[in-house]
């Protein structure tokens, strides 16, 4: 289903577990405020991969993404006193990440170097490899590299706000509600942007249909 509910930021098992996760994160935040660096390390380890993924897929540059992800964590560390627990820590951290990333893109709009990373082949489903086998491409790795570059190019042709929604929904697997909370807009706006962005991506990638 197109508008299927999905969530990784907040577990879907139930309200109780959601509350438990928030309580656990809040306890970690309190410990960081009291000067416990180990608590901050735990928060970093919990969210670093997803935050890095958001930044990397937005700017398509691995080296810059690493620096920017560190900047985001340092900003969170500096401002953790202002986190009041009204939203989840994850939403708060992602909001910092989104703002920092958009700021970076605005600053470096004229200086863009794209790079691709190695693919974790186990992360792809069987159906993907079945489709690859069905293609007439003689060299699968070359085909994958080409596809990666085309995908990067297509994503970069989207506007920042449309790319952000696609990255958060399709790649980071956030739900519409979570994206709305992170971007501080309505769910309807998220759905509308997602629909428009997908239509554009289909047009850009029609040769791979």
């Amino acid at each position: 289903m197109f508008f299927a509910s999905k969530s990784i930021g907040i577990p879907q098992e139930g309200l109780g577990e959601r509350e438990a996760l928030r309580d656990e994160e809040w306890a970690l935040v309190v410990r960081v405020r009291e000067g416990d660096r180990c608590a901050f390390d735990l928060l970093v380890r919990r969210y670093r991969e997803r935050l890095y993924g958001l930044v990397y897929h937005m700017i398509s540059n691995a080296a810059d993404a690493a620096d920017l992800t560190q900047d985001i964590f340092i900003q969170a560390f500096r401002c953790i006193g202002s986190f009041r627990g009204k939203s989840s820590f994850f939403s708060w951290l992602y909001r910092i990440g989104v703002n920092k990333t958009l700021e970076h893109i605005r600053r470096h709009r004229r200086r863009q170097f794209f790079s691709v990373q190695a693919i974790d082949e186990q992360g792809l489903g069987e159906s993907f490899w079945r489709d690859i086998s069905a293609t007439e491409a003689s060299d699968k790795s070359a085909y994958l590299s080409e596809l990666q570059e085309k995908l990067n190019e297509a994503l970069q042709r989207l506007s920042d706000k449309h790319r952000m929604v696609v990255v958060l929904y399709e790649i980071e697997n956030l739900s519409h509600a979570e994206i709305a909370a992170v971007l501080k807009c309505s769910e309807g706006t998220v759905r509308s942007r997602l629909h428009y962005a997908k239509e554009q991506l289909k047009e850009f990638l029609k040769e791979y249909a």
Binding site: A118, L151, Y208, A209
Partner: peptide, 26 residues
């Protein structure tokens, strides 16, 4: 192109991961 095909292509992006020693340096 269908939504499913686009989602499948975008999974390729999601499968891009940094090298294992990346996080140690990070």
């Amino acid at each position: 192109m269908s939504d499913e095909r686009l989602s499948q292509l975008l999974k390729l992006k999601a499968a891009e991961k940094p090298s294992p020693d990346f996080w140690e340096r990070f």
